[in-house]
Design a protein around this nucleic acid. Structure first.
Lengths: 131, 131, 131, 131
DNA sequence: GTGGTCTAGACCACA
DNA sequence: GTGGTCTAGACCACA
């Protein structure tokens, strides 16, 4: 069961926060392939958010091939991989990197610190599974 | 003289691009403390950008204490240090990292690849300095 | 200037009808690369449709790389090509073909007729330009 | 005996998949006029599908005059011809073509490729018949 | 019950 | 002015 939390004040739109957390849930195996998500209305209620907002997050994840929707039945974690071409993946990667660096370089952290923090995060993602 | 470039296509707002580059110019000493910035109009013209957009960037930097405005004389680099509190820096850093990872993890790159790319980027930033 | 018409009764959702017509406008060169679209609100008014519906169509076209949005300025026809991998394009093509055939075979047209109709449509798309 | 297969993952509703296959069974004489269909419950079980879904498909086919229900006896293939008016057939055909082209044209395939693929598909359909 | 679409209307961010 | 997000609430389609 995936736990999602949403911060309505933040600068990141709510529907994106939901998308991010679903994707992270999948990356970290908290959500297994084929598993069903809570229904749109249930999620909306538990997040105290309008159902349209949840629906938007989910429908974009479906378009990205991360989820699969079966009308009348529910939404499931898809098995498909990234539907994007290598060029598009690179483009998105670079853009994300650009924005990250723009945001972070301004904060005057050392390059080492930035790299260590990234490494620490990635390790945490691989998970408590590792003993 | 600081060279600023602006990418109107990107998803990053133009006024933020300007702010970031001014801040980086100061960090990297391309802009010295006490140095004057070009006027809003000049900047706007050279960047091919609405002058309101430049004005907004400048006024937020003044508000943050990065720049100082002397009425009728122009805008100057302030002598204050990092304008963020430690807590604020950390918060910003973590948020930027969250967003970066959310974007990038779905692209099916390995963790090693992500780290290498970051390292490569950081090296390039120091780059031309190396003699 | 692109002319769009929408049929609110139809089984195809309005936002998809809009997407289809924008894409066709681009395919048939009625919309040039770099050209601006009418604003979301203007389009909504002329189609007698809520602005959210138009916004949805446009935002999905942006995600598909067909359009480019510049905040505060407008929406423009992008120059990017299909961002999808070859496998994904094939998958989408086959799915569209499946649905087309399922819909059409039931109507008892001859195979020749189906092919001729397709050919006729494709010719028409290339346009009145050909003399 | 007609073999029906249903793909629950696809975007096409299950009840429509069933309807289409019954119709095609009749066109291709796999289902003879007057022949009985399996009961709703049997069909539902063999397709691993909710019986309401099967019931819906059948009842719409009855409404369209493709099948005939004889109370207490079962459901039979009716002797009527194509249940669509010429105008209705044309309308459906054109709409299916519109949607197909809308999906497919953005995928950057050449017109030739699209036509070849269609031809190949149609050949395969006649296929196994060829002795 | 579950997903999908749409309107009306508000409010924010950017140029 | 222009795009973007969100809520409240309705109604439809599917299983």
């Amino acid at each position: 069961m995936l736990e999602i939390k949403v911060n309505p004040g933040g600068s990141r739109p709510i529907y994106r926060q939901i998308m991010d957390q679903v994707r992270q849930g999948i990356s970290t195996k908290k959500l297994a392939v084929g598993e069903a998500l809570p229904s749109v209305r249930q999620l909306a209620e538990s997040l105290v958010v309008n159902h349209n907002t949840v629906a938007r997050a989910i429908s974009e994840l479906v378009r990205d091939g991360v989820l699969e929707s079966r009308h009348g039945r529910g939404v499931f974690v898809a098995k498909r991989k990234s539907p994007f071409s290598a060029a598009e993946r690179k483009r998105r990667f670079n853009q994300a990197m650009d924005e990250f660096l723009a945001e972070v370089l301004v904060l005057d952290y050392s390059h080492e610190h930035i790299q260590e923090q990234l490494a620490a995060r990635l390790v945490k993602l691989q998970g408590p599974a590792a003993t």
